[in-house]
């Protein structure tokens, strides 16, 4: 397939996808629409996690960073009573600062040590939420986060986000923005520099890339978008508590990224999509779901370690192999 026809295919299929998401509120039930909103938030989360993985750093605290964004939103919106257009950027920046505080010690570790240390830092934050009733609300978390609204009732530009359709569109805009920004970073020189760290850290260092600084920077950018996802989640569900941001959720995030793959930009999208569908289909088997997802994780790690994104190449390779065997036989 030539390069130009491939990009045409890409353009057409992404237009179809965008058309679906724009039309969705007219196509699906209100309940499904809420699920779709959560799905979009998960896309932001998975895509920001993939950014971390480009340097080879897999963390166990990404859900905690999302929680930081959500808690910041809860506190700023409920207790300080600030409007959303101040709350959301502030929540993202707060998450970025927390990410920086995480990243400075973590950047001194590598691989497994990094993974475990990120877990420890994350759990520390989660216990702070549990321990301090003011302002985090302890185990019960923060309830009654005001819904975001644009304008006052009666004004012509008033948009009521109690209407889930409006909030859906609001989330959609931020998801697309996130995807565009992260896609640009992925294709930029900076993105290649980060990927080069994953491929060969010593070599990157030798050609003048400050590996430590780059890893801290990726952590912060990734944290910023995790904070955005958390902020949207807090507005969507209206109440948050430490159990929203536990280990189980973190494992689901890892499953999305393993199933989809993280090498290409599209991997995590495929991962979130396929796993969300399976998640919904297995609703009747609720008790068995963790076991099922564990099985999926293991199967992918063993049979398709690159994730679904590598499936076309694997199939092509397999066809090619059988083809040549037939040719010689």
């Amino acid at each position: 397939m030539s390069k130009s026809s491939f990009s045409t295919h890409l353009l057409v299929s992404s237009l179809v996808v965008i058309a679906f998401f724009v039309m969705a509120p007219n196509l699906v039930s209100a309940y499904r629409l809420e699920l779709l909103t959560i799905f979009l938030i998960n896309v932001i989360l998975a895509q920001s996690y993939r950014l971390m993985a480009t340097t080879g750093d897999w963390t166990l605290c990404h859900y905690i960073l999302m929680g930081v964004g959500a808690y910041a939103t809860g506190i700023l919106a409920k207790m300080a009573g600030l409007p959303f257009y101040l709350v959301m950027p502030m929540a993202c920046v707060v998450t970025m600062i927390v990410s920086l505080l995480f990243a400075i010690p973590l950047s001194r570790t590598l691989g497994f040590a990094f993974f475990i240390a990120s877990f420890a830092l994350g759990e520390f934050v989660r216990h702070v939420w549990l321990k301090f009733h003011y302002p985090f609300g302890g185990a019960r978390g923060i309830n009654g986060i005001p819904k975001l609204e644009i304008g006052q009732g009666g004004e012509w530009y008033f948009i009521d986000f109690w209407d889930s359709r409006n909030f859906y569109y609001f989330t959609l805009v931020f998801t697309i923005l996130t995807l565009v920004i992260l896609f640009r970073i992925d294709r930029s020189r900076l993105g290649d520099t980060w990927k080069s760290i994953y491929t060969d850290r010593e070599l990157s260092e030798s050609i003048g890339i400050d590996v430590t600084k780059s890893r801290i920077m990726v952590f912060c950018v990734s944290g910023f978008f995790a904070g955005l996802a958390g902020s949207l989640l807090a507005y969507q569900i209206g109440s948050i508590d430490p159990h929203n941001f536990g280990m189980v959720e973190m494992v689901y995030l890892i499953i999305w990224c393993v199933v989809g793959g993280v090498k290409t930009f599209w991997g995590p999208l495929i991962g979130v999509l396929s796993m969300s569908i399976i998640f919904e289909l297995t609703r009747p088997l609720a008790e068995w779901r963790p076991a099922l997802f564990g099985l999926i994780l293991i199967l992918f790690l063993v049979l398709l370690p690159g994730g679904l994104e590598t499936l076309p190449a694997r199939i092509r390779e397999l066809l090619h192999r059988t083809g040549t065997q037939r040719g010689t036989g």
Binding site: I181, R184, I185, S188, R189, L190, G191, G208, V221
Partner: peptide, 18 residues
């Protein structure tokens, strides 16, 4: 990479495409 102006902002606005 050392001789380029690769920054986050340039990456986002698309000015550092090598």
């Amino acid at each position: 990479h050392l001789n380029t102006n690769a920054s986050l902002l340039n990456a986002i606005i698309g000015h550092d495409n090598h």
